[in-house]
Write a protein that binds this DNA or RNA. Structure first.
Lengths: 214, 214
DNA sequence: ACCATATTAATGAACGTTCATTCATTTAGC
DNA sequence: GCTAAATGAATGAACGTTCATTAATATGGT
């Protein structure tokens, strides 16, 4: 069988496939996967509904494309993030996480909210990627605890607590609001640092307070 | 206009309206409002779709009912929560929040995820209720900071950070998992206490670390 | 440089299905 | 027999997807 030359994409302006991704991203983030129709997406792209199927075989494939590329981007961005020498690992992680999640708010929102709209195979894959990301922080915490710089009762739980705290920021942050991104980073970094601090005058040794609710 | 006697509901077993609420709650939490059909709800209730309209005028009204009663329940539960004398306010809030959110995971999940599925009026109402709830914690933090027991840079941001941290628990907690609810409460209470502690040996005075990302 | 051809993408109409909702009628308790 | 609730069938609209056709582009031969 002879090899046939691959024809180039037409590439006038933004490719339609990319427009579809952008439109779907915005619409899914605003209204949710199930509430967005292929007609809605087509309208945003400026094309008839049938044309979408030249680029994605189903609506589900659009969602899968957005979520898988988001997870890959997140992990790649961490691997290639550049910080000044001497920046400690916690600061790196906190600043990176906040910046990435504020810059890619729609992607992050969809990756969290639409997990249940993914079919089983892709769901499992995205969850595994998320665990890889969480493990980055867990290892930072574990190493800091082993060296005595931090006091951490449970590195996995602390990981989830910190990530949940940071991931909540895009839900209320608005550009032009009271706080700049830099101020937010500083506030959260301080809270995170304190929450894992080796010792606290108010809380020497983290006494187990037990369960005293009536 | 004469007052007519209110006929009693038939009350054989669970009322249908209550069954509808329970079924919708479970289905909305599992699949999302937009992905659940009135037929799905009717099937769960064990009734024909048309029968639902004897109890709720539209699908949107079912969601509104669930969300408004959840917010009312949350605030009432806080007002009537009973703790031993001497339990400090932070401990009260952290334990209350965790317990309520683990016991009513579906309601909490829907109240967060389906805000965007509410029409404008009900959206505004739920948001206002949410702010009322957040204010409870903000005032605890502000008073503690004013008295010197806590060091807090920004009470509103700290409120959101703590609530996001705690609200993340139901996303991973599973009964019978590694940690009991009591252990989880203790872990999170310790982290919260440290994060608002007046002083930390590692972090004297919360130095502003500035912005040093490349 | 040019035409013929192969290839890609868009159209516009249609497919069958499912949606929320309505309603005349039947059923069952007071 | 009155009243509230359930049925079962129907409504029109919207859904994801398909497809024959048309338009537009790049490639290969000359």
């Amino acid at each position: 069988m002879a090899l046939s030359a691959r024809p180039q994409p037409r590439q006038r302006g933004l490719e339609t496939a990319e427009k579809v991704r952008k439109a779907a991203l915005r619409l899914f983030a605003a209204s949710g996967y199930a509430a967005v129709s292929m007609r809605d997406i087509a309208t945003q792209v400026g094309v008839q509904p049938g044309a979408l199927y030249n680029h994605f075989p189903t609506k589900q494939h659009i969602l899968k494309d957005l979520m898988l590329s988001h997870m890959a981007d997140l992990l790649t961005a961490w691997d290639t993030a550049d910080f000044p020498d001497g920046t400690d690992p916690i600061e790196r992680f906190v600043r990176f996480h906040i910046r990435y999640h504020l810059e890619r708010a729609d992607e992050v929102f969809i990756a969290y909210m639409e997990l249940r709209s993914l079919d089983a195979e892709n769901f499992a894959f995205v969850e595994a990627e998320r665990r890889r990301y969480e493990t980055i922080l867990t290892e930072i915490l574990s190493e800091g605890a082993a060296s005595g710089r931090y006091h951490i009762d449970n590195a996995k739980v602390t990981t989830r607590a910190i990530i949940a705290m940071l991931t909540g920021i895009p839900a209320w942050y608005r550009p032009g609001g009271d706080l700049s991104k830099e101020e937010i980073e500083t506030l959260y970094l301080n809270m995170v640092r304190k929450s894992i601090a080796a010792e606290t005058k108010n809380n020497p040794g983290n006494p187990d307070t037990g369960d005293r609710m009536a």
